[in-house]
Design a binder for these strands. Structure first.
Lengths: 330, 330
DNA sequence: GCAACTTTGGCAACCGATTGCCGAGGTTGT
DNA sequence: ACAACCTCGGCAATCGGTTGCCAAAGTTGC
């Protein structure tokens, strides 16, 4: 299996009756060789089934046409759309996308980056768990784009939480809620801090008292603990760090005989595929995942400045479903 | 950003006071250099922050330490577990996993493989949409492992449908169902054909009449059409090609006022994350996704023969939830 | 008709590793 | 004490492209 030697640029050159450098230029430098010669070369390559060796190309030119997308946790469905968007954009640009998983671990994230050094043109770090200093150091050595994390001057794409969280607060407030708990995500999650900041910053204005519980690892399983924590805080509404946690919370509340939304309302973040399927369907802050992925790739390929600002913020909108309803105070 | 030249093997050699070849061997050929020299080299590399250039290595040695995992459709949550398993196994073996998406398209799948030729050690094709002939041709040029597709002598890992489908038939039969519809997946899906074969092959034995409807693209949205098709067939139970389709079917039935499972039972395949969240929770044939991914990687790294048989079959088991219940005939 | 310039292809160095081969120095056997 | 062998480091070729530089051929201007 797999031992027929691949044709090289030299084979093509011989066949077309030109030098190897001419073949290289025929493909890589438009206008550098005459149209007639180019035709010959293309024909020869075609006949031989020539495919350029990416390693040889990368070794000399330093260009790899490869982008790494690092995900904090690949099992979070939110990343699906993000992957799709990034992958499509990368493909039309002729780049391949390498998807790597950090499994919510700083160490693994770091090692993965180490391992891909010299193999990719740059990294898109989605919900990175690295520290600010580590990121800054990395940005000095690699092309970097942050997703759902902001650390100027490193280019980034974030879903803007201000407007979205305001919508959540308005929603809960108008339903008559007064006491709200925020079940926070991992301490290393910039997004969780951002959400808390946006929520707590606007709470007073909307007549809400906000309590922070947690942190919790953002999984369905951990929703049970989070639900218990929120109940103990004696609130009528719970905002969870993300939909996975929110789903776990809804299930735990149900298991404990707490009616959703009659007794307690639950709101999540991300609007993952399963949010709509839950019973009751989950109210959640939607996120333009595919667009974010697409933009991150563009930011990486096209250095910010001329075409794009370095820090992109995407609006997010609340999707109201049945997990939130009138509070006991309203 | 990113322009400090990476130290090379020559820098390390100079610093350690040895030749470049010695450095190379110190890392790559155990026992080839003395322990004392190795220590010196390692120390020098450490101080310089040396990271080997993967392209240079691959160019000469032909080894890339990279595996491509091709998915028919990355948005299918079933692939989550598979990716996790494959990714972990690849990582412990020091390989990076490139995840590529075929978007259910034969052409895209083919082009992606073309584009990665020479950049990876081999391909794992999950639910490939390529034809038998195309796969055979590919197997002649690349290391290949098929996932959820069987085509001897190409190594493969499949979730065995015989036992699982028997469990479905037993389950439905014992609940008193007699007329069952199978909503089939894409015509290019080997898995769909396999499932149909296993179900229809065992139907008579269990006193069931099986009707095939479809094909349908396996998405939640298409569940609506599939549900209507099944209803027209006048059955009391529906087995869907996968959970996405099954979820769509359940929702459509509910929208049409058909009670699940009182009027019609629904069974899916894959036991994706959302199956359990659906109301009613979905009865579905579970699949050891992570294990399948792990084994596929092992099969690719370790040529079959000595350690593994070439064709692996993993057992699958029915997870009975509330979307299936007594049929009107029982 | 000749100088100046442009177009186009080739030569050869180079990217950063790996690896076959060689030989210096040390070890073992008798 | 000498041959045979082993250990271990270095030299240099090699993988398959890219690219700076050069020169032959063709164009243009006056």
């Amino acid at each position: 299996m797999g031992s027929v030697p691949e044709p090289t640029i030299y084979d093509v050159a011989t066949r077309a009756g030109v030098a190897a450098s001419t073949v290289s230029r025929a493909f890589g430098v438009p206008g550098r060789v005459s149209e007639r010669t180019r035709q010959k070369v293309v024909a020869a390559a075609e006949e031989l089934g020539y495919v350029p060796n990416p390693h040889a190309r990368a070794l000399q030119s330093g260009k790899h046409a490869t982008i790494a997308l690092m995900l904090a946790d690949i099992t979070n469905p939110y990343f699906f759309e993000l992957i799709r968007g990034a992958e499509q954009r990368a493909r039309v640009a002729g780049n391949t996308l390498v998807i790597v998983n950090a499994e919510e671990s700083r160490r693994i994230e770091f090692e993965q980056i180490q391992g891909l050094t010299g193999a990719v043109d740059g990294f898109i770090l989605a919900a990175s768990r690295l520290s600010d200093d580590e990121l800054r150091a990395l940005a000095g050595k690699h092309r970097l784009v942050l997703l759902d994390r902001e650390l100027p001057p490193i280019p980034s794409v974030v879903r803007d939480m201000r407007g979205g969280c305001r919508q959540i607060l308005e929603h809960l407030s108008s339903l008559g809620h007064r006491e709200v708990a925020y079940c926070s995500g991992p301490p290393t999650s910039w997004m969780s801090a951002e959400r808390w900041a946006a929520l707590s910053g606007g709470a007073e204005e909307h007549g809400l008292t906000l309590r922070r519980v947690g942190p919790y690892a953002p999984t369905v399983a951990n929703g049970a603990v989070a639900a218990d924590g929120a109940l103990r805080a004696g609130v009528t509404a719970v905002v969870a760090h993300n939909d996975l946690l929110a789903i776990g919370i809804v299930r735990r509340l149900r298991d404990r005989g707490v009616a959703v939304p009659e007794d307690v309302s639950v709101v999540g973040f991300d609007d993952i595929f399963a949010a709509e399927l839950l019973e009751p369907p989950l109210t959640t802050l939607g996120a333009p995942g595919a667009q974010a992925g697409r933009l991150a790739v563009e930011l990486l390929l096209d250095p910010p400045g001329r075409h794009h600002p370095a820090q992109l913020r995407l609006p997010s909108d609340l999707v109201i479903r049945r997990s939130s309803g009138p509070g006991s105070g309203g």
